[in-house]
Write a protein that binds this DNA or RNA. Structure first.
Lengths: 230, 230
DNA sequence: GAGGCGAGGATTGGATCCAAGATTTAGGAT
DNA sequence: ATCCTAAATCTTGGATCCAATCCTCGCCTC
């Protein structure tokens, strides 16, 4: 006796189930990355829980995860605070990015597919338009899309996730010290170079170019910050 | 009126406070890394909590952290299971290690200190003895000491921690497929080479040598595993 | 006899409650 | 007046309890 009221009975486990911890984590992460929660800001569990419409319990777990991701700093009986990166820590993140993005680009190039190349070309084109329109937020997103399209082709899940997290930490600063136009033209030129190297299948060259690209990003950010300590 | 009963009143914050979540996390991590908890094993929260002498609440948070570290896999309403790495995932981890250890070695060499060099030499010597005595566990630990003494000198906290976690994931397999003697002599020779390059200050060479060293480790592990899927 | 359906038990996610530690504020002594 | 002390308040960590989901086992139907 098939019951038509239930459309399909065979996909409850594969269906993505979002627990309250997930919801809280994602929302908090977004707030931090987009500046709604500033560096050094204290994270009061009770208030945050209320703001997120969850109990304190899932919120605490969310804080734990964000601490593990390096976005906040938590000490035992003290309020967690949004992690602000010192210049040294920023260099730290960028060196890790240099390393990871270098091999992801190399292996991504080695294992590239048509769809991956198409995605890169498309991101590059749109990025040119975004630059012309001076749309900063979109520019940052497209920059990310361009690189990560290639990195995805490497097929290294864990490496990819590590790189994503590193990227998160630094993009926050890029967005903050907004006027990214500094070096944007250079960045585009480097993207074109990377795309060409990828089309040519020059894995060694693409690694080297990617590392240079990342380090130049650090240099740009350094100049933007210059003066403050964090 | 100084009270002699309290030795010093001015160091409560710096004193390391270990929360139950920390205790549970460390113990569980150790169990997983040393094989007391095997791949695919289901982690029953109630039983584990009892075994660790903590409540289910801190245990759940510990599981969350280990999931974030990639040691276990957690799905919403299902028991967490100890993460087993497939061959592909093992390559993933090693590629990330190659990237990270490469730059840590490079920058560590650039910023090396006397104490760091001394530590490396000492680890190398003890490693030779451990190999002679066929003491596997000590050998793995000393291998780690040798490399990480150098990495510490780089002064990149975050990169260091990422690399530590990657190392955890792969060391578990090294210990499991015990007879590490395969390639141990090669490994020692490479360590000597790395030490020499470091003394010479050849940053480029040390990076290249370290990357080769890591990849050879992967190759060794592949041979040991060859046959099974995980 | 095999496959599907359903009920019961088991296990996890979430909420409230209590305890332990920390921060703040008021008070007193120098 | 300032600094130190101490008590009160606030915030976080941990435990127990309840609800929601999943898993297993037995039963029924074909």
């Amino acid at each position: 006796m098939p019951d038509p009221s239930q459309e399909r009975t065979d996909l409850p486990p594969p269906a993505e189930y979002r627990t309250k911890v997930d919801i809280a984590t994602d929302q908090l992460r977004s707030w931090i990355l987009h500046g709604q929660l500033q560096h050094g800001e204290r994270l009061d569990q009770t208030k945050l829980a209320a703001a997120l419409n969850v109990s304190r319990m899932p919120l605490r777990q969310a804080l734990l995860r964000l601490a593990e991701e390096g976005l906040i700093q938590a000490s035992p009986h003290r309020s967690a605070v949004v992690m602000g990166l010192t210049r040294a820590e920023l260099e730290d993140v960028y060196q890790a990015r240099r390393a990871m993005e270098g091999i992801l680009a190399e292996l991504g190039c080695e294992r590239r597919t048509d769809t991956c190349m198409k995605a890169m070309e498309r991101a590059l084109q749109e990025q040119e338009r975004a630059l012309a329109r001076n749309n900063l937020k979109r520019w940052v997103d497209l920059d990310r899309d361009f690189h990560f399209s290639l990195y995805r082709a490497a097929g290294l899940q864990r490496s990819y996730e590590i790189t994503e997290q590193l990227r998160m930490s630094s993009d926050r600063y890029i967005r903050h010290y907004a006027s990214y136009r500094t070096g944007a033209a250079d960045s585009l030129a480097e993207h074109r170079e990377i795309l060409q190297l990828c089309q040519a299948g020059d894995t060694g060259g693409i690694r080297e170019a990617t590392e240079r690209h990342v380090l130049r990003g650090l240099e740009t950010l350094r100049q933007l910050i210059s003066g403050g300590d964090e």
